[in-house]
Design a protein around this nucleic acid. Structure first.
Lengths: 225, 225
DNA sequence: CCAAACCAGATTGTATACGATTTGAGCAGG
DNA sequence: CCTGCTCAAATCGTATACAATCTGGTTTGG
């Protein structure tokens, strides 16, 4: 299907597939297979996989190959801890720079998210997962710091992976209304309220996770052989 | 000189050289040259350069090659803005987790920094630059979040690049006493004071920068050709 | 029958080959 | 003398080749 050629395009395509869970954690990503799929040589496939490993979405084991990452419970905890620390900061920056155009954009994202929520089927579910992350990224963009935005992109992407591994409820994009309330508080310039709601929101997402080590997991993953 | 073989080792060696300014911004890093220098093929040299570009230390221009990054004034501003937002958070986390062993480590770093300050010669200056960054990194490690630590590593490394381009005073590792005071406040569990000192410290570093666009800059860099 | 060595297939690690693009020098025309 | 073209050297982009490593099944000795 893909007519892509550059390693960046391949990286983006695989990243999207990981984020909306068409590729599940632990899946082997052989260089030859990726190359064939995108009609390029192993060289470019390898470059794309290496890029994804820098983003923490893929783990490469020497002489064994690349796999969609399976974050450990500890990694998951640290990831959400980082989000709890970073997102309030981003919210604060975003609040101080919020303008009319930003509000429109946020409202449009919320509306799209709500629309997807009422649709059925896996395609809609995947789009909803992505839309949910996009709202957090939109806030980072409003904050207007390219460095922070990149950090949030990594956090959101890896969070999707964590939810794929440890999420319990079928769809844990969780409170759409929570997103709505956060944006509402932000527009009212009520930073304290927005921050409180954001932390609550992250708590909710993490509460849906079961971070007790899975019993049926791969022995190699357990012992890191 | 280097007997390294893996692309990771090459990446680390080049990163160190960039951070302590043996490699200055704008320097061309040709794949063939890097490969020859480390006795590997272009394949591994290229992988190392690509890794560094993900860290923001190297920019690769299509069909032209890799160069030590020259952050723009705007990038520099955003970088320090991000530090002003992140470091207080890290300080707060570090304060809540500070133990005896951590204090010893911090004191040792301060002492080493002071020792280097009293030495002369370029080698000592470079070591001092690195030591200065190491203190900020040590604080991140005490905070105990691997994600935040990685973010700080990137920020500190890129900051060194910014100082190399825009720093005015010969040696802008700046207040050694400032580092000392921050650690002191931290050990007294005076988070407010430690945070204030940290922000002050970052202000001082940034105050030493001249972020007005350089006149003699490369036309290609100006217009991004 | 079981355990350990072994071999074949598959996959990654690294180097090299070759085409494509850029760049700067030299030359021809104005 | 200046402008613009041509071309060769250098460098990057990508594919391919071959060596090293891992894996799983088979054989062999007990």
């Amino acid at each position: 299907m893909p007519m892509t050629q550059t390693s960046e395009a391949i990286r983006d395509a695989i990243r999207d597939a990981i984020i909306d869970r068409r590729l599940t954690p632990g899946t082997k990503l052989s260089e030859a297979d990726v190359g064939k799929l995108f009609h390029v040589s192993r060289t470019l496939a390898r470059a794309a996989l290496q890029a994804l490993s820098y983003e923490g979405l893929v783990t490469v084991e020497k002489n064994r190959g690349a796999f969609v990452a399976q974050p450990s419970p500890e990694e998951a905890r640290q990831l959400f801890a980082a989000r709890r620390l970073l997102e309030p900061v981003i919210l604060s920056e975003a609040a101080s720079k919020l303008e009319e155009a930003h509000s429109h954009h946020l409202k449009a994202l919320l509306q799209e998210e709500g629309r997807l929520r009422n649709e059925h089927g896996q395609i809609a579910r995947r789009a909803e997962i992505k839309a949910s992350g996009d709202l957090h990224l939109a806030l980072a963009q409003i904050a207007g710091n390219a460095v922070l935005t990149r950090f949030m992109e990594e956090l959101v992407a890896r969070s999707s992976l964590v939810i794929a591994v440890y999420g319990q409820s079928a769809i844990s994009s969780c409170g759409h209304s929570e997103h709505h309330d956060i944006v509402e508080a932000l527009e009212k310039r009520d930073l304290a309220q927005a921050t409180a709601l954001m932390l609550h929101h992250i708590d909710h997402i993490e509460a849906d996770l079961d971070l007790t080590p899975k019993s049926g997991s791969n022995l190699r993953d357990v012992f890191g052989g």
